[in-house]
Design a protein around this nucleic acid. Structure first.
Lengths: 124, 124
DNA sequence: CGGCATCCTAGCCGATACTG
DNA sequence: CAGTATCGGCTAGGATGCCG
């Protein structure tokens, strides 16, 4: 990945496409879909705290990006399943790695913040 | 990383801490600092498009998180250098991996979006 | 040179209500 | 069950101007 070398500023462009990582729900949803297809409300229950609307929006965005596949069964009541595409699955793997990094550094991160804030406060 | 297994919803919590990765400038800055220390305006020039304020803010946040170290030389004119801590360096590595993923899937992503939008439009 | 303070806008995100 | 529509708050982030 030579275009990510320092000096190449492709990373500025690429970071635009990484913004969905920062949003609240993309990664949780993708990781939740890793084991297999899930129905809408099933997914909703599986991702605690998400609103119906954000689930819809995030799923649409993922579908648009070809990371998630939406399948509608025209039964009554309607049944809609979501599953990862192969690209989505590879993203999930990346997401888990990233989560692993955060998890293993979370303690240091928190400690560092506390120290920084304490120092800032004592200077007042 | 068992706590990232589907079924564990730690990922919801962790995703909170991933938000700063999704912001526009964190990754570009961290990657730019990979080769070694840089001065403020040097960094500013090296990261095209960043405003002075966002550079300041992002660097402060990185410093607070213990990812970047700030060193002031009390000369005239003042000189300030920023360099990655070891934790910052490991984040840079993660960032490059992530960037690599995006880069290698960017074409598919873009194509998928175009197809999705075209289909949505024809349905009007 | 290397900042900080202020103002402003766009878009994320949540809550609520309604539909096939 | 699986959405869509609407409203509104919060905040990331850009522009500008001042300071040591």
């Amino acid at each position: 990945m030579t275009s990510l070398d320092p000096g190449s500023h492709r990373c500025v462009e690429l970071s635009q496409h990484l913004r969905w990582i920062g949003d609240r729900w993309t990664l949780p949803i993708v990781v939740t879909l890793q084991p297999g297809a899930r129905r809408f409300n099933e997914l909703r229950r599986a991702v605690p705290g998400i609103s119906q609307q954000m689930l819809t929006r995030t799923l649409r965005a993922l579908e648009r990006d070809g990371l998630v596949c939406r399948e509608v069964y025209p039964t009554t009541p309607p049944k809609v399943e979501y599953r990862l595409t192969s690209m989505g699955a590879s993203l999930a793997a990346q997401g888990r790695e990233l989560g692993g990094w955060v998890e293993s550094h979370l303690a240091s991160l928190t400690a560092s913040r506390a120290a920084f804030d304490a120092k800032a406060e004592e200077e007042d």
